[in-house]
C-alpha cells in the first residue's frame, strides 16, 4: 500500500435548504481499505458518500481522488471517472428493471465502450463469482432481494473499480441474506484490491470493515488509519 490516501474529503460543507447536511466534514480513504461510515439517520453519511463519489458537489471544501481535484472537474469528467474508477451498490431500485441481470452487470462495461459479447462474458463470470450465475437471463423483478443485491455487487465490481461506494447494501435484506451479500462483497473487493466506502447503520455490517468513521451532525469523527 502507498503512503498516500486514494480519496480525500477536505472540510466539505453542503446545505439542503435550512438543513446542514455536511458541516466541515473531512475523511481519508486509503487504497484497498474498507471503511464503514456510521452514524444516525440524517447525520449526513449518504450525502458524504455522494460527495466523495462526485455525484453531489459540495458548496465548499474539496474532494480529491488520486491527487486530482474532483470538485474542479466538469460533470462529464466526473461521469467518466464514475464509469471507470468507481463502483456503486445501493439499497433499493438500483437495477434497471427492464434489463436482464446479466445485461445489468454488463452495463458499466458497455458504457465504457466494451463490446456486447465480451461484456456479457465478463458479466457472467462475475455473476458466478457472486453465486448467482443462474439468474443471468432473468429480469430483476423475477429474482429475490438477496440475489438482486448480489447482482448489484457484481455490477459494482465488474469494471474493476478502485473504489466501491456502498450505501446500506444490506438495508433491505434479512440477516442471513445480508451476511451472505457482505461476505461475498467484501471477499471480492479484497480480491480486486478495491477500497470500499460502506455506509451502514448496522454494526454487524460495519464489522466487515477495517475501520469506521462516525458521522454526526455533518461532521466526521475518523478513526486513525492503522497501517
Amino acid at each position: 500500500m502507498t503512503d498516500q490516501p486514494l480519496l480525500v474529503a477536505d472540510s466539505l460543507r453542503l446545505n439542503f435548504g435550512e438543513t446542514k447536511a455536511l458541516d466541515d466534514a473531512s475523511l481519508h480513504i486509503w487504497p484497498g481499505e474498507i471503511v464503514a461510515l456510521m452514524g444516525p439517520s440524517g447525520s449526513g453519511k449518504s450525502t458524504l458518500l455522494h460527495c466523495l463519489a462526485g455525484i453531489l458537489q459540495p458548496e465548499s471544501g474539496r474532494v480529491s481522488y488520486d491527487g486530482r481535484d474532483l470538485t474542479a472537474m466538469s460533470d462529464s469528467e466526473r461521469s467518466a471517472l464514475r464509469r471507470g474508477e468507481f463502483g456503486f451498490v445501493f439499497q433499493f431500485g438500483q437495477l434497471v428493471p427492464e434489463l436482464t441481470c446479466v445485461e445489468n452487470v454488463a452495463l458499466p462495461l458497455r458504457l465504457s465502450g466494451a463490446g456486447r459479447r465480451e461484456a456479457h462474458r465478463t458479466a457472467t463470470d462475475w455473476l458466478e463469482r457472486l453465486e448467482v450465475g443462474d439468474v443471468g437471463a432473468k429480469r430483476p423483478g423475477q429474482v429475490s432481494g438477496g440475489q438482486g443485491q448480489r447482482v448489484a455487487v457484481a455490477r459494482a465490481l465488474v469494471s474493476r473499480p478502485r473504489v466501491v461506494f456502498a450505501d446500506e447494501p444490506t438495508g433491505a435484506l434479512d440477516s442471513l441474506n445480508g451476511e451472505l451479500v457482505m461476505k461475498l462483497f467484501i471477499a471480492a473487493a479484497r480480491d480486486t484490491g478495491a477500497a470500499v466506502v460502506l455506509v451502514t447503520h448496522e454494526a454487524r455490517v460495519a464489522a466487515y470493515s477495517d475501520r469506521e468513521a462516525v458521522v454526526r451532525d455533518g461532521r466526521v469523527r475518523e478513526q486513525e488509519y492503522a497501517r
Binding site: A203, R204, A206, A207, Y208, S209, D210
Partner: peptide, 8 residues
C-alpha cells in the same frame, strides 16, 4: 467494533 471485526 474491534471485537466484532475479530468475531466476523
Amino acid at each position: 467494533l474491534r471485537l466484532m471485526r475479530e468475531l466476523t
